[in-house]
Amino acid sequence: MNNEVVISIRDLRIAFGDYKVLQGVDLDLYKGENLVVLGRSGTGKSVLIKILVGLLKADSGTITAFGQQVEELSRKELDALRLKIGFSFQNSALYDSMTVRENLEFPLVRNARNLSRKEIDQAVEEALDNVGLSQTINQMPSELSGGQRKRIGIARTLILKPEVMLYDEPTAGLDPITCIDINNLINEVKERYKTSSIVITHDLTCAKAVGDRVAMLFDGQFQRVGTFEEVFDTDDERVQQFYNYNFVEERRMS
């Protein structure tokens, strides 16, 4: 991790009707870091990264990614930027009607049209190897487990060799062992592909395992940003409640 800012967000605001979701968000993502965005459901974590890639439009504020202001980009420029930013969806969003191979080929053949069949096959095999699922190449998404789907979803974004990865709830709905696998994979991706990442989660185990820095979103703003220990070393009741529920209550219940 160094001090070069890859993505910079300033005074970002968005509301859905009367419900103000983000109310002046400021954040910097540094090159080579894993930044975890923590917060309760409905606080706008996913909305934030969807605005980053142009899936949603903010009401106001600026996002600068790789020196370009996202909201001012043309469709073509936005597509070029999207090639540098991989997005792993909460429910994987694999194309149901395509095999794993076709899912991985899809972004590749559309964005690198001069590739030969052999090069495409190699890229697909390499991406699958990197997530440890080479054997699933001819399977349909419906034949995969939740953890496998997550991995294939990550492989599909990695095939374009992005510089930034955005993970939307990577461990949601998975068993604890698979969660650890996914956390390890996120760290491996960072090392192997030299990516900077934003990881959206409400899972503190995941945050602790992958986060170089953690940012806590409350009331539409980042209230605390720092290392995991720095963020939770506070008397703020909301932060403590969040910590206790994740680490104390969940263990007690299990």
Binding site: K50, V53, G54, L55, D79, A80, R82, L83, I85, F87, F89, Q90, N91, A93, L94, Y95, D96, S97, F106, P107, R110, N111, R156, T157, L160
Partner: peptide
């Protein structure tokens, strides 16, 4: 088909992969 692709974010996945 398209409705299901919309609600399972498959259309968004195409969009973010510059398709």
């Amino acid at each position: 088909e398209l409705g299901s692709m919309r609600v399972t974010e498959q259309i968004d996945a195409m969009e973010v992969s510059a398709t």
